[in-house]
Amino acid sequence: MFRALPFVYAAMSVSGAVTLLTSVAVGFAGVLGAGALSRPLLRSVTADPAPRPD
């Protein structure tokens, strides 16, 4: 919502479109990065799905 404010207060402009596209790209990169960083944890958790006697 915060990044969409330039579109609310002004007509469609190049700087607003660049801001929006940059925000979308950074968000997409963040999602991909979080997935890549969590992959080792997911592998270690799902490596042996047998219940452990605790």
Rank of each mutant, 00 (worst) to 15 (best):
S15Y: 06
V26C: 08
S13I: 04
A34Y: 11
A34V: 13
P51M: 02
M12C: 06
A4F: 14
A4R: 09
G30N: 14
A36Y: 12
A29T: 10
A50K: 02
Y9C: 09
G35F: 09
A25D: 03
M12E: 10
D54M: 00
T19S: 09
L20N: 00
A11M: 06
A10I: 04
G33S: 12
A34S: 13
Y9L: 14
S13F: 03
A17W: 10
F7H: 11
T19V: 11
F28A: 15
G16V: 07
A36P: 02
P6T: 07
T22P: 01
S15A: 14
P51T: 01
A47M: 01
A29N: 05
L42T: 07
S15R: 11
D48F: 00
S15E: 14
V18N: 02
P40I: 04
S13H: 10
T19D: 11
A36R: 15
A36H: 06
V31W: 10
R39G: 02
V26A: 14
A4L: 15
L21Q: 01
R43S: 01
V14M: 08
T46C: 04
F2T: 13
F7M: 13
F7D: 05
G27E: 06
L37G: 04
G33A: 15
V8I: 15
S38W: 07
G30W: 07
G30Q: 10
P49V: 05
A36C: 03
P40H: 05
V31N: 03
P6I: 09
L21P: 02
V31H: 06
L21Y: 02
T19C: 05
V8A: 13
A36I: 10
P49H: 00
L42D: 03
L42A: 12
S13A: 09
F7S: 10
R39D: 04
G16C: 06
Y9S: 12
T46A: 07
A25V: 14
A17V: 14
D54T: 00
